[in-house]
Design a binder for these strands. Structure first.
Length: 682
DNA sequence: GTTCTAGAAC
DNA sequence: GTTCTAGAAC
């Protein structure tokens, strides 16, 4: 991280004697504390003493009180001291901080380097290379890092410098090395990434032109930026540069009325704007996480904490998750303390670009895309705010029609919110408050889309042997993809796997079943390779396939009435020859191994047979979801929709999850279950 | 579709 | 070190 710090030592000519400093190093073993001290001491003209707990006992490990004593004595001699011990939690630091007084400044240097680096260094240093020792070192470092508490100015430090990488360390080294006996350094907290959210730092890093605020004051009560429309500039939005990160402008702001405030705080306590700042803010924006869950530290945690459980419930009513660039408006129930105490009527959750490489929409340093998403995020936010104003303007007008006019717009908003908090209105307004605006059309023409190479296999190139020319995007089937086609054409020669043969269909168990029961019903028509080949002429065949599937389901349900089935097609199958999947919804199978397996049955990629029948019947073809990204989407439970980080965890979850299926699956006979269970919520 | 495996993540 | 994913080959 870049540190924009005014580190020029400030000589104080009037003083004849400089102030000694206590510099408390904060960092895990292997973070480079000792090296830092030694290097500074080697080049500094200031007298330094390094107090190292590891060696203070005649070269051996000593105690904290020995360190304190030594430090006090060095300070008395007018020397500055480095406290070279881990000091990772507040309690560990407290007594060293007390060494400070009006004539002795206390600084912290936080060496917050990657755990991996600390571990490898500590392993090398002790000469215990090898698995066991390495593992132990890792365990020790990890344990320490889990408990770490970053220092805050409120602990009594006059200056804190955060270093997250080698160049930060080098910068800090330069600063302290250049510090002569009479020099002092500016007070404050420097170089800390926003402790609230990794995402925000990610954005800062991503926007290389952006200067990370050098002075990130850690004081929890400070409001770093609270913006009302009165302060916004009437200029066109441009979210590329640093001046746009915390400034808010755009058309939406023009719609705002006097006295209606939207607060967007990048950090600090946005939850006490009224009680501590006297600022009436009816709507607050939250830099949410994609799951729209509490926690994660920082603004998101603060808002959810302050709003109480009511916000979580209200949020879930609006949306389960959020895509980057989107916003969702959540009316805050009047039971929430944030409503009653602060007058906040709405929280707008908004999600910026995803900097987490483990998520499918990882930004991956795509600057242009990042700018688009940021623009979209701000637009969604303001659209959401504007919709609140519009809705409440009407409501307030109605409710205040016969009342004295109220000069305070903010008050109007609060009253309007009160009137609308009847359950019916909440339900009714649900849709109005969703702001998942898809602005992708506007982004068309961006470099990443125009410049994208289309793989040859995606263009209408055709393998004469096994594909036909239809002008659409088709691909050649690999040799491995022919198995079902061969079986459909010559079922008699595959009697070992085939369960049923008719003129129209062949039924077989999936060779690699993804659930306890997983059948394939193959169409026997030559040339009917997949759903995109289907036309109205095939409607009867599709019905036959569906009915054959249902017949087998019935059989399976007689054997095990607890099973629940779904019948459907993959939008883009891997195997040639149109085949209907008949699959039980336990997904209890060792063959279900990866994301693609899961998502091919549990996203829009899977098209329910009933829907296909309806579409082919009415439009003559099925609407395919030919979108590769569906297969790499995050892993979500098909029942409760919870997200899981990997397949093993997902499988462990689904083996226990008894939540009812989502409403969409409960409709239109998409799920098939035993008649005796039909009345029970599956 | 699966298998294999490099390398990332933990 | 083990677990897990994702891409290549088939």
């Amino acid at each position: 991280m870049e540190m924009e710090i005014d580190d020029t030592p400030k000589p104080k000519g009037e003083e004849t004697k400089g102030k000694p400093i206590v510099v408390i190093l904060v960092g895990a073993p292997g973070s480079g504390k000792s090296t830092f001290c030694e290097q500074v001491m080697a080049s500094s003209t200031r007298p330094w003493v390094r107090i190292c707990q590891d060696t203070i006992g005649n070269g051996k490990s000593g105690t904290k009180s020995q360190c304190l004593k030594s430090a006090a004595s060095a300070l008395n001699d007018g020397k500055s001291v480095f406290i070279d011990r881990c000091n990772l939690d507040r309690e560990q630091r407290a007594e060293f901080v007390k060494l400070g007084n009006p004539n002795v400044d206390v600084h912290a240097i936080v060496l917050d380097l990657p755990a991996k680096l600390c571990i490898s260094r500590s392993v090398k240093r002790t000469g215990h290379e090898g698995n066991l020792q390495g593992g132990k070192a890792a365990a020790v470092v990890n344990r320490m890092l889990q408990k770490k508490e970053f220092p805050k100015l409120s602990e009594g430090f006059t200056r804190i410098t955060f270093c997250q990488n080698e160049s930060d360390v080098q910068a800090a080294h330069n600063t302290y090395s250049a510090l002569g006996p009479l020099d002092t350094l500016p007070n404050g907290s420097f170089g800390q990434k926003n402790p609230d959210a990794k995402i925000q730092l990610g954005i800062m890093r991503f926007l290389k032109k952006v200067e990370v605020p050098a002075n990130t004051v850690s004081d929890a009560n400070s409001i770093q930026s609270s913006v009302s429309h009165k302060n916004t500039e009437e200029k066109e939005p441009s979210y590329k540069g640093h001046d746009n990160i915390s400034s808010f402008s755009g058309n939406a702001s023009k719609e705002l009325k006097e006295g209606e405030n939207l607060a967007v705080c990048s950090s600090g306590d946005i939850t006490k704007l009224y009680s501590e700042g006297g600022l009436r803010c009816n709507v607050i924006a939250n830099a949410a996480n994609w799951r729209l869950k509490p926690g994660g530290g920082g603004v998101n945690a603060a808002i959810f904490n302050a709003a109480g459980p009511a916000l979580e419930v209200a949020t879930k009513e609006q949306a389960q998750s959020l895509h980057p660039g989107k916003a969702v408006v959540v009316p805050l129930p009047s039971t929430s303390p944030l409503f009653s105490r602060e007058g906040v009527t709405h929280v707008i959750h908004v999600l910026g670009p995803n900097m987490n490489q483990h998520r499918p929409n990882f930004l991956n340093n795509d600057y242009i895309k990042g700018c688009q998403i940021l623009r979209e995020a701000y637009t969604s936010l303001f659209e959401g705010f504007a919709s609140i104003i519009r809705t409440q303007g009407k409501l307030a007008k109605v409710s205040n029609e016969n009342l004295d006019s109220n000069p305070s717009g903010a008050q109007e908003v609060i009253e309007g919110a009160n009137t609308k908090h009847s359950p019916n209105n909440d339900q009714k307004s649900k849709r109005e408050h969703e702001h998942d605006y898809d602005r992708s059309k506007k982004c068309k023409g961006s470099q990443d889309e125009i410049g994208a190479d289309i793989p040859e296999s995606k263009i209408g190139k055709v393998d004469k042997n096994n594909d036909k020319i239809d002008g659409s995007m088709t691909k050649a089937w690999g040799s491995w993809a022919q198995a079902l086609h061969k079986i459909a054409m010559h079922p008699q020669t595959h009697k070992d796997v085939v369960l049923e043969i008719s003129d129209d269909v062949v039924v077989l168990n999936d060779l690699y079943p993804k659930a306890r029961r997983h059948l394939l019903v193959l169409a026997r028509s030559e040339g009917l390779d997949r759903l995109s080949d289907v036309s109205k002429d095939h409607l009867q065949l599709l019905k036959t396939m569906h009915n054959v599937g249902l017949k087998w389901v019935e059989k399976f349900l007689q054997e095990d009435a607890s099973l629940i089935f779904r019948l459907g097609y993959h939008s883009v199958p891997s195997m040639r020859q149109l085949h209907l999947h008949v699959i039980s919804q336990d997904f209890d199978s060792k063959n279900l191994k990866n994301k693609k397996h899961w998502n091919s049955f549990n996203t829009a990629f899977f098209l329910d047979s009933v829907d296909v029948l309806e579409e082919v019947s009415s439009h003559g073809k099925a609407t395919l979801r030919d979108d590769e990204s569906l297969l790499s989407m995050e892993l979500r439970c098909h029942r409760c929709r919870s997200a899981h980080p990997n397949i093993p965890r997902l499988k462990s979850h689904i083996s226990n999850c008894q939540a009812p299926f989502p409403p969409s699956l409960l409709q239109n006979s998409r799920l098939v279950l035993a008649p005796c269970n039909a009345g029970i919520d599956p």
